[in-house]
Design a protein around this nucleic acid. Structure first.
Length: 155
DNA sequence: AATAGGGTCAACCGCTAATCT
DNA sequence: CAGATTAGCGGTTGACCCTAT
């Protein structure tokens, strides 16, 4: 059988977000806060699935993201973190305030992985930089792929 | 000047894991 | 306790740009 769209995508909008949709989403979250993604689009009046709203907010609309060009220092940090953590983009993002996992993943795939050899050369030849890994965070999230975040330890 | 080709990046999908009932 | 529900992750896609021809 033809594969059905994952949720009930029937009648729901997909693809790139318009400025108007962004405005509706940002305004709704400003009033009601984050979370409750499943019911959010209905309440806010968006023809999107909750997943789409969550992704748009987390990766683009929240002012926690700064979305500038990656600096040389950030390049360096990403390469080093990736060497240690592998494709754990969410963990890597935890060490880079203002950057999202999606953004870092994209950047890695588009730019850094292509240039990894020259980067490696630079790093071994150049001055050493030390990075600090938060082991507690690391073990807590050790090898997960996906899955809901544990409820913040309160209760 | 027009367009084919390649690179970027926003967003989707399938799946996993925590929580709810 | 088990099945249903929902949040979150990482791989992947494809629409949109930029450049070379």
């Amino acid at each position: 059988m033809g594969r059905a769209p994952c949720c009930q995508k029937v009648g729901l909008k997909r693809g790139r977000w318009t400025a108007e949709e962004d405005h509706i989403l940002a305004k709704y979250i400003a009033r009601h806060g984050e979370g409750l993604w499943r019911s959010l689009p209905k309440n806010a009046g968006l023809l999107r699935c909750g997943k789409s709203c969550r992704l748009r907010w987390l990766n683009y609309l929240t002012d926690k993201v700064r979305r500038g060009k990656f600096s040389r220092e950030e390049d360096d940090l990403i390469v080093k973190l990736h060497a240690t953590l592998g494709n754990r983009w969410s963990l890597i993002a935890n060490h880079m305030p203002g950057r999202t996992d999606n953004e870092i993943k994209n950047y890695w795939n588009a730019h850094l992985s292509r240039q990894i050899h020259s980067f490696r050369h630079t790093y071994t030849a150049g001055n050493e930089t030390t990075i600090t890994i938060d082991i507690n965070r690391l073990s807590a999230a050790s090898k997960r792929r996906g899955g809901r975040a544990p409820r913040s330890s309160t209760k």
